[in-house]
Nucleic acid binder design. Structure first.
Lengths: 149, 149
DNA sequence: CTGCAACTTGAAGTGCACTTCAACTCAAGC
DNA sequence: GCTTGAGTTGAAGTGCACTTCAAGTTGCAG
Protein backbone atom coordinates (compact mmCIF):
# COMPACT_ATOMS: atom_id res chain seq x y z
CA UNK A 1 0.00 0.00 0.00
CA UNK A 2 3.03 2.16 -0.28
CA UNK A 3 2.26 3.11 -3.84
CA UNK A 4 1.73 6.53 -5.33
CA UNK A 5 -0.39 7.69 -8.27
CA UNK A 6 1.13 9.60 -11.13
CA UNK A 7 -0.35 12.81 -9.79
CA UNK A 8 1.22 12.27 -6.41
CA UNK A 9 4.55 11.49 -8.00
CA UNK A 10 4.29 14.65 -10.07
CA UNK A 11 3.54 16.70 -6.96
CA UNK A 12 6.38 15.20 -4.96
CA UNK A 13 9.01 15.25 -7.67
CA UNK A 14 8.17 18.46 -9.43
CA UNK A 15 7.96 16.63 -12.76
CA UNK A 16 4.72 16.87 -14.77
CA UNK A 17 2.61 13.73 -15.24
CA UNK A 18 3.09 14.01 -18.99
CA UNK A 19 6.84 13.95 -18.45
CA UNK A 20 6.59 10.89 -16.22
CA UNK A 21 4.63 9.09 -18.95
CA UNK A 22 7.22 10.21 -21.44
CA UNK A 23 10.01 8.83 -19.26
CA UNK A 24 8.19 5.53 -19.13
CA UNK A 25 7.86 5.40 -22.92
CA UNK A 26 11.57 6.14 -23.10
CA UNK A 27 12.41 3.38 -20.68
CA UNK A 28 13.71 5.50 -17.82
CA UNK A 29 10.92 4.63 -15.48
CA UNK A 30 8.52 1.77 -14.95
CA UNK A 31 5.29 1.73 -13.01
CA UNK A 32 3.08 -1.14 -11.91
CA UNK A 33 -0.56 -1.01 -13.01
CA UNK A 34 -3.82 -1.37 -11.13
CA UNK A 35 -6.59 -3.60 -12.40
CA UNK A 36 -7.94 -0.54 -14.16
CA UNK A 37 -4.59 0.15 -15.90
CA UNK A 38 -3.56 3.11 -13.82
CA UNK A 39 0.09 3.61 -12.89
CA UNK A 40 1.17 2.95 -9.33
CA UNK A 41 4.69 4.01 -8.38
CA UNK A 42 6.80 2.95 -5.51
CA UNK A 43 8.43 5.42 -3.22
CA UNK A 44 11.84 4.30 -4.48
CA UNK A 45 10.95 5.67 -7.90
CA UNK A 46 11.26 9.15 -6.45
CA UNK A 47 14.97 8.46 -6.24
CA UNK A 48 15.10 7.54 -9.87
CA UNK A 49 13.31 10.75 -10.76
CA UNK A 50 15.59 12.82 -8.55
CA UNK A 51 18.51 11.19 -10.26
CA UNK A 52 17.09 11.98 -13.68
CA UNK A 53 16.60 15.60 -12.76
CA UNK A 54 20.10 15.89 -11.41
CA UNK A 55 21.65 14.30 -14.44
CA UNK A 56 19.72 16.65 -16.68
CA UNK A 57 20.99 19.59 -14.69
CA UNK A 58 24.47 18.39 -15.49
CA UNK A 59 23.55 18.43 -19.16
CA UNK A 60 23.21 14.72 -19.78
CA UNK A 61 20.72 13.46 -22.36
CA UNK A 62 17.88 11.13 -21.43
CA UNK A 63 19.54 8.54 -23.59
CA UNK A 64 22.62 8.50 -21.43
CA UNK A 65 20.57 8.63 -18.27
CA UNK A 66 18.62 5.59 -19.43
CA UNK A 67 21.87 3.74 -19.95
CA UNK A 68 23.06 4.66 -16.48
CA UNK A 69 19.81 3.62 -14.84
CA UNK A 70 19.91 0.33 -16.71
CA UNK A 71 22.71 -0.66 -14.36
CA UNK A 72 20.35 -0.71 -11.44
CA UNK A 73 18.77 -4.08 -10.61
CA UNK A 74 15.41 -4.63 -12.26
CA UNK A 75 13.87 -7.22 -10.03
CA UNK A 76 14.52 -5.70 -6.64
CA UNK A 77 14.44 -2.23 -5.16
CA UNK A 78 17.91 -0.72 -5.58
CA UNK A 79 19.90 -0.72 -2.39
CA UNK A 80 22.09 1.97 -1.01
CA UNK A 81 25.05 0.12 -2.51
CA UNK A 82 23.42 0.06 -5.95
CA UNK A 83 22.87 3.78 -5.84
CA UNK A 84 26.34 4.38 -4.44
CA UNK A 85 27.99 2.56 -7.30
CA UNK A 86 25.93 4.41 -9.87
CA UNK A 87 26.36 7.75 -8.21
CA UNK A 88 30.09 7.65 -7.79
CA UNK A 89 30.32 7.57 -11.56
CA UNK A 90 28.14 10.63 -11.69
CA UNK A 91 30.20 12.37 -9.15
CA UNK A 92 32.98 12.06 -11.68
CA UNK A 93 30.83 13.53 -14.38
CA UNK A 94 29.97 16.37 -12.08
CA UNK A 95 33.59 16.88 -11.16
CA UNK A 96 34.58 16.96 -14.79
CA UNK A 97 31.88 19.41 -15.65
CA UNK A 98 32.70 21.61 -12.71
CA UNK A 99 36.35 21.58 -13.73
CA UNK A 100 35.37 22.57 -17.25
CA UNK A 101 33.31 25.45 -16.03
CA UNK A 102 36.12 26.60 -13.79
CA UNK A 103 38.47 26.61 -16.74
CA UNK A 104 35.82 28.49 -18.64
CA UNK A 105 35.57 31.07 -15.92
CA UNK A 106 39.30 31.46 -15.55
CA UNK A 107 39.78 31.81 -19.28
CA UNK A 108 37.00 34.34 -19.45
CA UNK A 109 38.60 36.37 -16.69
CA UNK A 110 42.11 35.89 -17.96
CA UNK A 111 41.44 36.67 -21.58
CA UNK A 112 39.29 39.61 -20.72
CA UNK A 113 42.16 40.85 -18.63
CA UNK A 114 44.36 40.85 -21.71
CA UNK A 115 41.57 42.17 -23.87
CA UNK A 116 41.58 39.45 -26.48
CA UNK A 117 38.72 37.18 -25.43
CA UNK A 118 39.66 34.84 -28.20
CA UNK A 119 39.73 31.81 -25.93
CA UNK A 120 41.11 29.69 -28.70
CA UNK A 121 44.22 31.47 -29.80
CA UNK A 122 45.03 33.93 -27.09
CA UNK A 123 48.64 34.98 -27.57
CA UNK A 124 49.28 35.28 -23.88
CA UNK A 125 48.06 31.85 -23.01
CA UNK A 126 48.69 30.00 -26.21
CA UNK A 127 51.61 31.77 -27.90
CA UNK A 128 51.96 29.70 -31.04
CA UNK A 129 48.55 28.32 -31.89
CA UNK A 130 49.58 24.87 -30.89
CA UNK A 131 45.98 23.96 -30.33
CA UNK A 132 44.98 24.63 -33.91
CA UNK A 133 45.61 20.99 -34.81
CA UNK A 134 43.24 19.70 -32.14
CA UNK A 135 40.00 20.85 -33.68
CA UNK A 136 38.02 24.03 -33.81
CA UNK A 137 36.46 26.17 -31.14
CA UNK A 138 37.51 26.91 -27.60
CA UNK A 139 39.77 23.90 -27.26
CA UNK A 140 41.50 25.00 -24.11
CA UNK A 141 38.27 24.96 -22.25
CA UNK A 142 36.42 22.00 -23.64
CA UNK A 143 39.52 19.88 -23.93
CA UNK A 144 42.37 21.20 -21.82
CA UNK A 145 46.04 20.65 -22.81
CA UNK A 146 46.70 18.45 -19.80
CA UNK A 147 44.44 15.77 -21.30
CA UNK A 148 46.64 15.06 -24.26
CA UNK A 149 50.22 16.30 -24.25
CA UNK B 1 40.76 43.96 -46.14
CA UNK B 2 40.62 42.40 -42.78
CA UNK B 3 37.32 40.70 -43.47
CA UNK B 4 36.50 37.02 -43.43
CA UNK B 5 33.99 34.99 -45.42
CA UNK B 6 31.39 32.88 -43.71
CA UNK B 7 33.38 29.77 -44.51
CA UNK B 8 36.50 31.20 -42.93
CA UNK B 9 34.53 32.21 -39.85
CA UNK B 10 33.10 28.72 -39.62
CA UNK B 11 36.55 27.19 -39.85
CA UNK B 12 38.04 29.51 -37.27
CA UNK B 13 35.18 29.40 -34.77
CA UNK B 14 34.06 25.81 -35.10
CA UNK B 15 30.51 26.93 -35.79
CA UNK B 16 28.83 25.79 -39.02
CA UNK B 17 27.98 28.39 -41.67
CA UNK B 18 24.32 27.49 -41.30
CA UNK B 19 24.54 28.29 -37.62
CA UNK B 20 26.19 31.62 -38.32
CA UNK B 21 23.36 32.53 -40.69
CA UNK B 22 20.92 31.40 -38.05
CA UNK B 23 22.60 33.62 -35.47
CA UNK B 24 22.29 36.52 -37.86
CA UNK B 25 18.57 35.89 -38.37
CA UNK B 26 18.24 35.77 -34.59
CA UNK B 27 20.06 39.05 -34.17
CA UNK B 28 23.14 37.76 -32.38
CA UNK B 29 25.52 38.56 -35.17
CA UNK B 30 25.70 41.01 -38.02
CA UNK B 31 27.85 40.85 -41.12
CA UNK B 32 28.61 43.46 -43.75
CA UNK B 33 27.83 42.50 -47.35
CA UNK B 34 29.85 42.65 -50.54
CA UNK B 35 28.40 44.12 -53.74
CA UNK B 36 27.31 40.59 -54.59
CA UNK B 37 25.50 40.16 -51.25
CA UNK B 38 27.97 37.83 -49.61
CA UNK B 39 28.69 38.17 -45.90
CA UNK B 40 32.00 39.64 -44.79
CA UNK B 41 32.82 39.38 -41.11
CA UNK B 42 35.28 41.33 -39.08
CA UNK B 43 37.84 39.65 -36.94
CA UNK B 44 36.14 41.09 -33.85
CA UNK B 45 33.12 38.94 -34.62
CA UNK B 46 35.12 35.90 -33.61
CA UNK B 47 34.92 37.24 -30.08
CA UNK B 48 31.18 37.48 -30.29
CA UNK B 49 31.02 33.92 -31.49
CA UNK B 50 33.37 32.72 -28.78
CA UNK B 51 31.18 34.46 -26.28
CA UNK B 52 28.06 32.83 -27.69
CA UNK B 53 29.65 29.40 -27.47
CA UNK B 54 30.76 29.97 -23.91
CA UNK B 55 27.39 31.21 -22.82
CA UNK B 56 25.76 28.19 -24.39
CA UNK B 57 28.13 25.93 -22.52
CA UNK B 58 26.87 27.55 -19.36
CA UNK B 59 23.36 26.66 -20.42
CA UNK B 60 22.10 30.06 -21.45
CA UNK B 61 19.55 30.39 -24.25
CA UNK B 62 20.28 32.32 -27.42
CA UNK B 63 17.56 34.72 -26.35
CA UNK B 64 19.44 35.69 -23.23
CA UNK B 65 22.72 35.80 -25.09
CA UNK B 66 21.20 38.20 -27.61
CA UNK B 67 20.11 40.44 -24.77
CA UNK B 68 23.58 40.40 -23.27
CA UNK B 69 25.25 41.16 -26.58
CA UNK B 70 22.83 44.00 -27.17
CA UNK B 71 24.75 45.89 -24.50
CA UNK B 72 27.79 46.08 -26.70
CA UNK B 73 28.13 49.22 -28.82
CA UNK B 74 26.68 48.86 -32.29
CA UNK B 75 28.53 51.53 -34.18
CA UNK B 76 32.08 50.79 -33.10
CA UNK B 77 34.15 47.71 -32.49
CA UNK B 78 33.74 46.76 -28.82
CA UNK B 79 36.71 47.71 -26.72
CA UNK B 80 38.38 45.72 -24.01
CA UNK B 81 36.35 47.75 -21.52
CA UNK B 82 33.09 46.87 -23.27
CA UNK B 83 33.88 43.19 -23.12
CA UNK B 84 35.09 43.47 -19.56
CA UNK B 85 31.84 44.97 -18.39
CA UNK B 86 29.80 42.35 -20.19
CA UNK B 87 31.98 39.50 -19.11
CA UNK B 88 32.10 40.32 -15.44
CA UNK B 89 28.37 39.70 -15.39
CA UNK B 90 28.96 36.35 -16.98
CA UNK B 91 31.63 35.49 -14.55
CA UNK B 92 28.90 35.80 -11.97
CA UNK B 93 26.65 33.51 -13.91
CA UNK B 94 29.46 31.02 -14.17
CA UNK B 95 30.22 31.34 -10.47
CA UNK B 96 26.59 30.75 -9.61
CA UNK B 97 26.35 27.79 -11.86
CA UNK B 98 29.57 26.32 -10.55
CA UNK B 99 28.30 26.78 -7.01
CA UNK B 100 25.08 25.02 -7.92
CA UNK B 101 26.93 22.09 -9.38
CA UNK B 102 29.12 21.87 -6.32
CA UNK B 103 26.06 21.72 -4.11
CA UNK B 104 24.68 19.11 -6.45
CA UNK B 105 27.82 17.06 -6.13
CA UNK B 106 27.98 17.40 -2.37
CA UNK B 107 24.35 16.49 -1.97
CA UNK B 108 24.77 13.54 -4.25
CA UNK B 109 27.69 12.30 -2.22
CA UNK B 110 26.10 13.15 1.10
CA UNK B 111 22.72 11.66 0.43
CA UNK B 112 24.21 8.59 -1.09
CA UNK B 113 26.27 8.29 2.03
CA UNK B 114 23.10 8.15 4.07
CA UNK B 115 21.35 6.01 1.48
CA UNK B 116 18.36 8.21 0.91
CA UNK B 117 19.21 10.08 -2.30
CA UNK B 118 16.03 12.00 -1.90
CA UNK B 119 17.74 15.34 -2.29
CA UNK B 120 14.59 17.14 -1.44
CA UNK B 121 13.59 15.76 1.91
CA UNK B 122 16.63 14.00 3.25
CA UNK B 123 16.09 13.55 6.97
CA UNK B 124 19.73 14.03 7.79
CA UNK B 125 20.09 17.29 6.01
CA UNK B 126 16.59 18.62 6.17
CA UNK B 127 15.03 17.13 9.32
CA UNK B 128 11.55 18.62 9.17
CA UNK B 129 10.72 19.18 5.53
CA UNK B 130 11.08 22.89 5.92
CA UNK B 131 11.72 23.23 2.24
CA UNK B 132 8.38 21.77 1.28
CA UNK B 133 6.83 25.23 1.18
CA UNK B 134 9.39 26.52 -1.30
CA UNK B 135 8.28 24.54 -4.33
CA UNK B 136 8.84 21.07 -5.68
CA UNK B 137 11.94 19.21 -6.71
CA UNK B 138 15.51 19.32 -5.43
CA UNK B 139 15.16 22.70 -3.76
CA UNK B 140 18.30 22.50 -1.73
CA UNK B 141 20.36 22.30 -4.85
CA UNK B 142 18.62 24.59 -7.27
CA UNK B 143 17.78 27.14 -4.63
CA UNK B 144 19.86 26.70 -1.50
CA UNK B 145 18.57 27.70 1.96
CA UNK B 146 21.19 30.43 2.35
CA UNK B 147 19.50 32.40 -0.44
CA UNK B 148 16.32 33.02 1.47
CA UNK B 149 16.30 32.55 5.23
C1' DC C 1 36.12 34.41 -70.26
C1' DT C 2 35.08 30.21 -68.26
C1' DG C 3 34.57 26.96 -64.72
C1' DC C 4 33.80 25.68 -60.21
C1' DA C 5 33.80 26.04 -55.30
C1' DA C 6 31.73 28.90 -52.23
C1' DC C 7 28.18 31.76 -51.48
C1' DT C 8 22.85 33.36 -51.36
C1' DT C 9 17.77 32.64 -50.08
C1' DG C 10 13.39 30.65 -48.16
C1' DA C 11 11.28 26.63 -46.91
C1' DA C 12 11.21 22.45 -44.97
C1' DG C 13 13.27 18.90 -41.99
C1' DT C 14 15.58 17.12 -37.55
C1' DG C 15 16.21 15.77 -32.69
C1' DC C 16 15.26 16.39 -28.13
C1' DA C 17 12.21 16.80 -24.37
C1' DC C 18 8.26 17.48 -23.55
C1' DT C 19 3.04 19.34 -23.71
C1' DT C 20 -1.54 19.44 -25.46
C1' DC C 21 -5.58 17.42 -27.21
C1' DA C 22 -9.57 14.39 -27.90
C1' DA C 23 -11.88 10.68 -26.56
C1' DC C 24 -12.36 7.68 -23.26
C1' DT C 25 -12.04 4.93 -18.45
C1' DC C 26 -11.29 4.61 -13.46
C1' DA C 27 -11.85 5.24 -8.48
C1' DA C 28 -13.59 7.33 -4.56
C1' DG C 29 -17.02 10.16 -2.04
C1' DC C 30 -21.68 11.21 -1.34
C1' DG D 1 -25.31 4.25 -8.39
C1' DC D 2 -23.84 8.50 -9.90
C1' DT D 3 -20.86 12.18 -10.30
C1' DT D 4 -16.46 14.11 -10.72
C1' DG D 5 -11.62 14.64 -10.58
C1' DA D 6 -7.82 11.94 -11.86
C1' DG D 7 -6.19 8.67 -14.85
C1' DT D 8 -5.53 6.28 -19.80
C1' DT D 9 -4.10 6.29 -24.87
C1' DG D 10 -2.20 7.72 -29.47
C1' DA D 11 -1.47 11.46 -32.28
C1' DA D 12 -0.28 15.84 -33.04
C1' DG D 13 1.86 20.20 -31.55
C1' DT D 14 5.69 23.16 -29.38
C1' DG D 15 10.17 25.47 -28.79
C1' DC D 16 14.84 25.55 -29.35
C1' DA D 17 18.83 25.32 -32.08
C1' DC D 18 20.08 24.13 -35.79
C1' DT D 19 20.67 21.42 -40.60
C1' DT D 20 19.36 20.22 -45.15
C1' DC D 21 17.65 21.14 -49.55
C1' DA D 22 16.73 23.26 -54.03
C1' DA D 23 17.54 26.69 -57.00
C1' DG D 24 20.02 30.24 -58.09
C1' DT D 25 24.41 33.85 -57.75
C1' DT D 26 29.22 35.28 -56.86
C1' DG D 27 34.08 35.59 -57.08
C1' DC D 28 38.54 34.00 -57.85
C1' DA D 29 42.05 30.89 -60.56
C1' DG D 30 43.54 29.70 -64.64
Amino acid sequence: METLTIGEMAARSGVAPSALRYYEREGLLHAARTGGNQRRYERADLRRIAFIKIAQQVGVSLDEIREALAELPENRTPTKADWSRLSSRWRHRLDERIAMMERLRDQLTGCIGCGCLSLQRCHLINPRDRLAARGTGPQMILNPPSDKP
